[in-house]
Design a protein around this nucleic acid. Structure first.
Lengths: 255, 255
DNA sequence: AATTCATTGTGTAGGATATACACAATAGTA
DNA sequence: TACTATTGTGTATATCCTACACAATGAATT
């Protein structure tokens, strides 16, 4: 791939070859800046995170670079779409990681990519079942991991993931969660499991339900979820209008 | 100033001339990245923010660039020290601003500095009386403004300031404030005034005091503050140990 | 010296919210 | 048909939040 096509990419510029990235990254992208995404999903009662594996290398967060005339938010959205196929998902910038030592042991990189990078972290909440993980040209695998059992990650990516999870955890204090992580219809136990796995602690069933219903963002459906081995729980869905309002103006509490 | 001295600055590299910055900024600094600081102080019952005025130009936030082997946090600390003379102050990264249009109308810049910059915002809490505002080589003035009456700011700096204030406001929900903004000894009314001006709303005197004392981070002194025109209020100080603990593990509430 | 004024110090009652906790109903399975 | 794990549901208690009023004080004024 020649330099010209890098300057004016016609299509699929994201499918830039590793070689071109090494030699001409700065033609397309802002140098010294990257974006890393912590993509959370929820499946079978477990909080999951989407990771990539480098060819013959370690696991890492899906990330990428910022084009010269692209907003950082847009870059994050683009990276997410490349990896999951999804757009219109919940994505939030949470921290910039700027320690010059953060990429210590950068043995896997050469050329432009070997420069120092400050990375801007985003976390995403996506519906597990809608995602079809796609590795990129630098990676051989892309798959979901339980947050509790993620393997060693490259550089400071574990730290980035932990910070994302902490941020998400804190955000539960003033914002609801679930719309982006659960299917359209879900049961109260499923919603509770979601909160429990984000918080890392068990919650009282009755108090949880009372609190959730008090938020006034849920609609109880007439249907029940059958097929489970026990008493069939009712299905709920979110009232999108009310959910969005709660999301925007935050939940009670505080000053 | 020659290029050589830019590559290996012996001392005061921050006193880089505007001309050298324009022509050789990338020798010293990471390109496309800047840091802007929203420096809050508190004086005479008003929340203040420290602003710079460019020579023949608009007001702006104190900011700067990141050296090649310097952490972003360190850059922020350094910029703060240059402007206020203080170190050991409370400084917190709150957001990265990455819209390519954010510096729209960049008529004041040429050369390296005219590139696109993603800026990382920090807010600082400093003790007003300890600060001696210092303009840099690019600016003619450096002074405190009431947050309520800041003038028009360059680019998106007003937006950055607003976001900083919102972040600070939200942080009151789970973290105490005051240690970095008030003198060692202070009165309950002063502390209340601080909260009120951050929150932009009046608070009930008795409930405020009850709530503050319940945090168990204050020490009531035997002395009173005399000299005021009315009944002399008691002085308090923070219990640093307990304050730090509250700061670290957050205040109650939530899940 | 007495009065005035703005401000400080202090407590309680009522309402709202959070917590702890138990038993009957049910859907599938054995 | 019985069993088992799970769901649905309410109340009593403690805790927290909110609203609210009056006496004491220190300086300034007369």
């Amino acid at each position: 791939m020649g330099v010209k096509s890098l300057l004016m990419p016609k299509r699929k510029p994201e499918l830039l070859s590793p070689e071109a990235l090494r030699t001409h990254g700065d033609r397309l992208f802002l140098s010294h800046l990257s974006v890393d995404c912590v993509i959370f999903g929820f499946h079978e009662g477990q909080l999951k995170v989407l990771l990539l594996k480098w060819k013959d290398g370690p696991w890492c967060l899906p990330g990428g670079f910022i084009k010269h005339h692209e907003s950082v938010d847009h870059a994050a959205t683009r990276i997410l779409k490349e990896r999951t196929g999804l757009d219109e998902i919940y994505l939030k910038q949470f921290h910039a990681f700027g320690d010059p030592q953060r990429e210590r042991g950068k043995r896997y990189k050469q050329g432009w990519i070997a420069n120092r990078f400050v990375t801007i972290g985003y976390y995403a909440l996506v519906e597990y079942s809608k995602v079809f993980p796609q590795p990129d040209l630098l990676s051989s695998e892309c798959k979901w991991w339980d947050v509790a059992t993620v393997p060693d990650l490259i550089y400071d990516h574990k730290q980035i993931m932990t910070t994302a999870l902490e941020t998400l955890r804190l955000s539960l204090n003033d914002h609801p969660v679930g719309y982006n992580l659960l299917p359209l219809k879900f049961t109260m136990p499923e919603l509770q499991r979601l909160y429990e796995t984000i918080l890392g602690q068990p919650l009282d069933r009755r108090n949880f339900q009372k609190r959730m219903l008090a938020l006034d963002i849920l609609v109880k459906l007439k249907e029940r979820k059958t097929g489970g081995a026990h008493k069939a729980p009712f299905l709920y869905r979110f009232d999108k209008k009310k959910y969005d309002r709660a999301m925007k103006q935050g939940l009670v509490g505080g000053w």
